[in-house]
Structure formats: structure tokens, C-alpha cells
Simulated assay, not measured.
Amino acid sequence: MSRSPQTEAEQNIALLADDKFTEITRVPIWDPEQDDVLVCRQVRQETHDVKTFVFSGREPRAFRFYPGQYMTFELPVEGRVTRCYTISASAARPYRVEITVKRVPGGPGSNWLHDYMIPGKEITVSGPAGEFTTDATTEEKLLFLSAGSGITPMMSMTRTACDLSEPSDLHFIHAARMPSDIIFRDELALLSAQNPSLKLAFTCDTTLASHSWSGYTGRLSLPMLSLMSADFMDRKIFCCGPALFMDGVRNMLKQAGFNMEKYYEESFDFGAETAGTHEEPASVAPEISDQLFRVSFPKTGHVVECGPGMTILSAAREAGLMPVSSCQRGICGTCKSKLLSGRVDMQHGGGIRQREIDQGKILICCSSPLSDIEVEL
């Protein structure tokens, strides 16, 4: 009896997470707890301000990830900067991972990568993590909506589906400033030509006469969406891009009466630069719900009381301290600190390794005290 496309695709991807995969390939699984260093193997210029960086292990390793997940990179700039970038590669090609990064004016992470990351250079990485993923080979009608560098998780999902078989019924809509800013334009056109169930549509804010543009022009609107994907109301929608773009999409879909339970998005707004995760801020559930705990910061001498469900980061700010932080979701690892004494409830999203936890480190943005504590910032 033949298996359904969904079962085959899920088993193919799940194989990457199975110990038997090592035996089949005779290539060990990459384990960031044992070796968290990757080597840049290739740099590709995608557009004038977007590059793809391809990485692999120092020795041959197989990576296991789901399409749409991200990895956290520790960059040697301004002391140390951590940034989360979505994997843009196909999960069905496990021997390398790649990220596609847009240069952000003034952004320390993206500018360092664009200026200094070259083949042969090593970088410290953790992950993968994140749950913004889907199997585009399922017998399910999907619609991907992306803008700018928000295309990266959608590209990973699309590449994976095309490698495993082909998308079952996928509409892929991408918005860009102008035609020259469309990332992966040629590859998407090729994938669409090879996979008839993959239908593409692009819209650009502006065009130039030299572009010979025959696609849509202007911001994505409800009438435009209806032309691009006439049955969008019947589809499961995945959205990723700048905050204003996603706000507009949500408002547009609500106006149309779309069932928002079938809408999924990935946030790309961590403040200074884009990063990849869709998860909501981690909820914290302390074991003791009605007790105040003392949070001490020995280096500065500050002491503050921390109420139920209050994070250590919030307590530090109430004490007048301004510890370095970024995502505030337990993802990026920027606020990593040493717990000197006491117990905490930490609900992180992948921004800290187990060996660091074993060494007494915590992420203060997603940790709440379970006793009086001392923290070294």
C-alpha cells in the first residue's frame, strides 16, 4: 500500500533527526554541544545588499533541522554580538547549512558578515531552533507571503518540498522594493517551471524603465491578493517580513474575514537587526505564585524585589540597570549571565546551550526567581 505524500515527507525529514541516519550516511550528526564551530565554505551575492553564507562543520557532519528554523550566531563585533538568522537551505540537503542576510545600515551583525565573512573563516553557532515550519508536500493548500529578507524561511520550506517530491498546492507571493531586490528570483522561477503546483507572484513598490517589469506594482492589497491567489481564503497562510508588512497582512486578512487560526507568522523585528523566530515571548510559571524574592546584583550592589512571573531582566531594569539584551524571548542569547546563587525557572527558546546551563549560566530575559538569587551581570 502506498504511503501518503505527507507521511513520506515527514519520514524523510525525521530521518535527519534519527540516530540511524548516522549509520546510513556514515557521517556523524553535527552536535553543537560537542563542537559549536562552523566553517564558511561559500559566499554568494544574491542582490546588491543581500548575501548567502554557506557553512559546514570542520569535519563532514550532517545537520538536522526543519525548514524554517533558525540558528544563533556569535559574531566577534563590539565585544560579542549574537544574531539569529533563518536557515535558507533545504532540509533535504543535510551536509551544509546556509543563511541569507541583508545588509542593514548601521547593523553591526549584518555588516560584519558582509564585510568579513569569507570562505575558510570560522564562526560559533548554536541551534537550530524555532517552530515556524510546515511540510509543503502535504495535501494541503498553502500560501506563503513574504517581504524583503522574510523570504528566507519560505525558501527553505519550498526548496525542501521540491527536493522531497514537489509542493502539493503552494502559492508563493513575495513583495520587494523593486525588481532588482527580489531575492532568489531566478531560482524560484526555475523551481516553478519544474514544479507546476508551485505558483509564484511578485509585487514591487517601484520600478524603473530599465527593469522591463511585467509583474505587479504597488503595496500588497486585498484586491491584488485576490488576483494573485483567488482561493486564498481556503489556504493556510505563512507570513514573514518586516513588522509593518505583517501588520498590513493581518489587517488585510481580518478585513476579508479570513480564519486567523490558519495564519502563522515569524517575527523579524528584534530591534536593531532582523532575526529569525516566530515564537511568542516565553511564558514563565514560577513554582511559588504569591511570594516576592530578592534579586541581588553583587557587582553593582543593587538589590530589588522580584514579584511573581517577573523576569530577572525586568528586575534589573527596575533597579536602574541596563543589561545588554535583544530578543527578550530566550532566543538570541545576548543577555546570558551567571547565576551565583539561588534557583530560577528559565523558559528559553534555544538561546543557551545545555553545557552553559550546567555551568550556572542563565538568560535573564526569560528567567524568573524561585528563591532569593544573586546574578552576575
Rank of each mutant, 00 (worst) to 15 (best):
A176I: 10
H174C: 05
S214R: 13
L190G: 02
T217M: 06
M246C: 09
F184H: 11
H171D: 07
F245E: 08
L191I: 13
A193I: 00
C204S: 07
S197D: 04
L188F: 06
P242A: 13
N251S: 14
P179K: 08
I183N: 00
I173R: 03
E187H: 10
T277Q: 08
L170K: 01
F184C: 09
M224I: 00
T203C: 14
I182V: 13
K199Q: 14
R235H: 12
A275Y: 09
N195H: 15
L191E: 02
S289D: 12
T206I: 06
G276K: 02
E305C: 06
E273S: 08
I182T: 08
E279Y: 08
D181R: 13
K254S: 09
L188K: 04
A282N: 04
V284M: 07
M246K: 09
V295F: 01
G218Q: 09
H171T: 05
G215W: 01
S210K: 12
G257T: 11
M260A: 03
N259R: 09
C204L: 02
D205K: 04
E279W: 05
M260T: 14
Y263N: 09
G215M: 05
D269S: 15
F258K: 13
F238M: 13
E261I: 07
R250G: 01
G301L: 12
M228Q: 15
A243S: 12
S226P: 00
S214H: 14
I288Q: 15
M228C: 11
A176G: 10
D290Y: 04
K262G: 02
D181Q: 11
T206K: 09
T206D: 03
P242L: 07
F297T: 03
Q291E: 12
L190M: 10
F258R: 07
I237L: 08
M228K: 06
W213I: 14
D290N: 14
F258Y: 15
A243C: 00
A201T: 07
G271K: 12
E305D: 15
Y216A: 13
A275L: 10
E305G: 06
S180I: 04
F172G: 00
S214Q: 15
L220W: 03
P242H: 12
I173K: 01
D231W: 05
S192G: 14
P242W: 09
T274L: 02
D290V: 00
F172A: 02
F238H: 02
M233T: 08
Q255Y: 09
P196C: 08
T206P: 00
D269F: 13
G257P: 10
H278D: 06
C204E: 01
Q291I: 05
F293Y: 15
A201G: 12
P223G: 05
W213L: 06
L222R: 10
S180L: 05
V249G: 06
E280G: 04
K236Y: 01
V304N: 03
A272G: 13
D186F: 11
K299S: 15
M233D: 05
K262D: 14
M178F: 02
E261V: 07
Y263D: 05
L208V: 00
P179C: 10
T277S: 14
T206A: 04
P223V: 08
S221I: 04
L188P: 06
Y264L: 01
E280K: 06
S212V: 08
